[in-house]
């Protein structure tokens, strides 16, 4: 028991904590996504969820020792931006019509 603990590196202890905290953060954003109350609130929540997913992918890349996971993170950043701008245009257009 003591031996296995000694063989654990600092990173092995940190990563589960970090991933759990990030998952909890996504949960909080999902609560806002469900509660609304208006469409812009939900769009902001979706944007935050995408940003947190990028953080999760980057820390998963460290956790699973898989640098390839950074590529979906990069793509997700750009898709989140396009999605948010599209939603914003929709909200503004709906208001002006």
């Amino acid at each position: 028991m003591i031996e296995t603990l000694r063989r654990l590196s600092l990173l092995d202890v940190t990563l589960p904590v970090v991933l759990a905290l990030l998952a909890f953060g996504i949960l909080l954003a999902v609560v806002r996504l469900l509660r609304g109350p208006t469409l812009p609130d939900r769009v902001v929540a979706i944007d935050l969820i995408a940003t947190q997913a990028v953080a999760m992918l980057a820390s998963s890349a460290i956790a699973f020792n898989e640098p390839a996971l950074l590529q979906p993170a990069l793509v997700l950043t750009l898709i989140a931006f396009v999605g948010t701008v599209a939603f914003a245009r929709y909200v503004a257009k709906r208001a002006s019509s």
Binding site: T38, V54, A73, T77, A92
Partner: peptide, 28 residues
């Protein structure tokens, strides 16, 4: 790749926030 993520994030996040904030204001 990491620096590219940071760069894109710093370029896109303010623009996205501005557009959604403006849309929310215009929508009342």
């Amino acid at each position: 790749r990491s620096l590219l993520i940071v760069l894109f994030l710093y370029l896109t996040a303010p623009v996205a926030a501005h557009t959604i904030g403006r849309a929310a204001y215009v929508a009342g």
